[in-house]
Design a protein around this nucleic acid. Structure first.
Length: 729
DNA sequence: ATTCGAACCATTTTT
DNA sequence: TGGTTCGAAT
């Protein structure tokens, strides 16, 4: 264990070492891009643990994403020979997951109006609930289609006591109603997790009794990753964890009891301010906690030319120092249009692969999600393996989306909204209207719906005997009568049942593990924990289930751990990653930078481009179109290209100019547009479909989730669109 | 119900 | 700049 830490220590540069050793009450590390930010964070945790004898239990290590949290724990485990028990790292995770754990284990949620059995809402659920309240209470709220955004954005104004909402409607009257309803149904939205835990952590927030009884958790150290991405709510949570109310100065006397803050971030990589406050949280935090600022100036990732170019886009700090001998190359290319570019990229990447570069070392970044469509099509035709960074969630698979709701209601019968959604589901529910479903749930009419009865009696029905093992997946499957609910006669029954069963296996495995680690927990609590954490985990499907769900996935990629494929993603999605070779496409005015309204926005576009450039280790190729073919995008050099000194650019050629090549694009675009039309309103005329088993057929109906088609010799069959079983032509 | 002008917004996405 | 949505007016 110790040798590992010494090894790690020796590999740190003196800036990094200083950061690790810092013991100020608050320290914020300005970690330049590629400067070993996470390494420092891990070293800090290990140093505190091993040299300062601070147990992991007394630390909060907070991240913005699950991915980052997973990475930290994984690297920590690797550095510690002894296994780290899950209960030791209860303070490690995303802001939301740590808040959830606190609310469940350490804080008296009862004071705030919930019970310990509360569940976590799905993000869309809150909007749905709000819409229902608007209707049932006859509120007048404008821009309902943007309600989600409005609820988030205008909360600050509401909280600070503003009299009227932005559009002078009843939005502000909706907030208290919504909160009351969430308490009544015993569930919290994501933001509630932070808001309520912050409230209960603050002195005077929770009742004095409860605090004395439980003892509010005061971590000795609070360590934060990517602080620049945190928002106002997360900042308050931090302050509360540290025991700072932010108001009076009375906390001075408790100084030695207060936790210390160590935060790591990069103000130059703020690319998500459009969803937060807009202020640069890095400096806000430094100011608020009076933190000492340290800098990590050495970049270990990119070649010198790439760094020098990137430095032109740096907004804060004095410049990044390079470490690598290698200069790296920057190339600027001009292509006639996106189609020509895609063709060129496919050829170029094939060539690179033939001369020994792995596909996985190559990435293509673009500004807008829709730019990926053409690339994917062309790459497919050329047989270039690629991976789009689009996350698939449980919600994308209708059976699982529904099944999760079944479980969620079973585990929290106060959650009327979910109960109703389950029963009124057009696919798997009780073939009843929302109204009828509402009646069943509200009047507890178990005799009317067997499914409702099963969900309602789930706690005592399945978990009756305490000595029993956790029920098997099959037992759960049977209990809810899924055999019937999933339509055994439908074509997709086998797949649906398989998917559902696989998911239930997952549930059982998780619960079994929890029980093993901490006996004495009740089955229901384990189950609730699973449901809650899956809500927070973005409902991501892990490999096993995903394979079960779509066996005939688009490309026949190998089932290896990391498939060797080119990564296609937006500039935003590229943050935190690195590749040997990076292509940034569409560096045209109107795209990079995107047409922006203010100075602030323009700065963010610049940071975004900076983030993209600095992903490249050795080769960076930037390209622009002569004919972008999009309204608002000019067929010129982006000014970002002009910002790169010419001597750093090693080649400037391309396929631009020749106009006859435009034909391909026209064709491709037309094709894409036609496909879109078919997806949206396919019942125009006779649309032909193809199925692996049933062959050619004719489309009968398509409601967005289910496709019904008629096949000669087989009759009408239904399919779930999400599985892509049928190919609509 | 339908039509009109005015206001607003577009893209990026995690929990 | 063009597409959507709101509210007022037919």
């Amino acid at each position: 264990m110790k040798t590992d830490f010494r090894d790690m220590w020796r590999q740190l540069n003196h800036y990094q070492q200083e950061a690790v050793l810092d013991e100020n009450p608050a320290c914020v590390v300005n970690a330049n891009v590629g400067s070993g930010k996470t390494t420092v964070l891990i070293a800090k945790v290990l140093w505190l643990h091993m040299e300062k004898q601070i147990p992991f239990e007394d630390m909060a290590v907070l991240t913005f994403t699950n991915k980052a949290a997973d990475e930290i724990i994984a690297r920590l485990k690797k550095s510690c020979e002894g296994e780290i028990a899950p209960e030791q790292v209860h303070g490690f995770g995303t802001f939301h997951s740590v808040a959830l754990r606190l609310l469940k284990d350490r804080l008296s949620v009862e004071t705030a109006g919930w019970t310990k059995e509360f569940t976590v809402m799905d993000p869309d659920e809150e909007t749905d609930l709000a819409l229902e309240l608007i209707t049932s209470r006859g509120l007048k709220v404008k821009y309902k289609n943007r309600l989600k955004k409005r609820l988030e954005q205008e909360y600050g104004a509401y909280e600070s006591g503003k009299a009227e909402s932005r559009y002078k409607d009843d939005l502000f009257a909706l907030y208290p109603l919504l909160l009351k309803e969430k308490k009544r149904q015993n569930k919290m939205a994501f933001s509630d997790l932070l808001r309520v835990s912050t409230e209960l952590l603050s002195p005077g927030g929770g009742s004095a009794d409860a605090e004395a009884e439980n003892g509010v958790w005061r971590p000795a150290w609070v360590i934060v990753d990517e602080v620049q991405d945190s928002d106002a709510l997360q900042m308050e949570f931090l302050a509360a964890l540290l025991g700072q109310t932010g108001k009076g100065e009375e906390h001075k006397e408790h100084e030695e009891h207060r936790g210390k803050l160590f935060a790591v971030g990069d103000p130059n990589q703020v690319i998500y301010s459009w969803r937060g406050t807009g202020d640069n949280m890095f400096f806000l935090l430094k100011h608020r906690f009076g933190a000492r600022e340290l800098t990590l100036p050495v970049n270990y990732r990119s070649g010198a030319s790439i760094l020098e170019a990137a430095n032109r886009f740096l907004q804060f700090g004095t410049g990044i120092q390079g470490d690598r001998e290698n200069r790296g190359t920057i190339t600027v290319k001009n292509h006639y249009d996106p189609f020509q570019e895609a063709e060129y990229l496919a050829e170029r990447i094939r060539g690179m692969h033939e001369s020994g570069t792995a596909y996985r070392d190559i990435a293509v970044f673009y500004r807008l999600q829709r730019q990926s469509e053409l690339l994917a099509k062309v790459f497919e035709r050329h047989g270039i393996p690629y991976e789009l960074s689009v996350k698939e969630t449980l919600k994308d698979i209708p059976v699982l989306d529904w099944l999760v709701k079944v479980l969620r209601f079973s585990v929290n019968s106060m959650d009327e909204q979910t109960g109703i959604a389950v029963l009124a589901d057009p696919l798997y529910g009780e073939k009843c209207t929302k109204k009828k479903a509402g009646q069943i749930v509200r009047e507890d009419r178990r005799e009317t719906s067997e499914l409702y009865r099963r969900m309602k009696e789930f706690p005592c029905g399945v978990f009756s005997g305490k000595e029993e093992e956790f029920p098997s997946a099959q037992a759960l499957f049977d209990w809810f009568g899924l055999r019937e609910a999933l339509h055994p006669t439908s074509a997709e029954y086998r797949r649906d049942a398989q998917t559902a069963l696989a998911f239930l296996e997952e549930v059982c495995a998780y619960c079994g593990q929890i029980l093993e680690e901490g006996p004495g927990k009740r089955y229901m609590d384990c189950m609730r924990e699973f449901i809650n954490s899956s809500a927070l985990y973005g409902m991501k499907i892990d490999a096993g289930e995903k394979n079960a769900a779509d066996k005939n996935a688009v490309d026949g990629g190998e089932t290896g751990e990391a498939p060797d494929s080119v990564k296609l993603m937006t500039l935003h999605a590229s943050k935190g990653l690195e590749f040997d070779t990076v292509f940034i496409i569409g560096v045209n005015p109107g795209l990079i930078p995107l047409r922006c309204t203010g100075f602030e926005q323009e700065e963010e576009e610049r940071r975004l481009f900076f983030v993209g450039m600095t992903r490249a280790k050795n080769e960076l190729e930037l390209s622009w179109y002569t004919n972008p073919g999009e309204p608002g995008v000019a067929g010129e050099y982006s000014r970002y290209l002009k910002m790169i000194p010419e001597h750093l650019i090693s080649g400037e050629t391309g396929t631009g100019g020749s106009s006859e090549k435009g034909y391909g694009l026209q064709q491709m675009r037309r094709q894409i547009q036609e496909n879109r039309k078919k997806k949206e309103q396919p019942e125009e005329k006779k649309v032909r479909v193809r199925h692996r088993k049933y062959g050619e057929g004719v489309l009968v109906s398509d409601d967005g989730t289910t496709v019904e088609a008629e096949f000669p010799g087989y009759g009408k069959k239904q399919f779930l669109k999400a599985f892509g079983e049928v190919e609509i032509k």
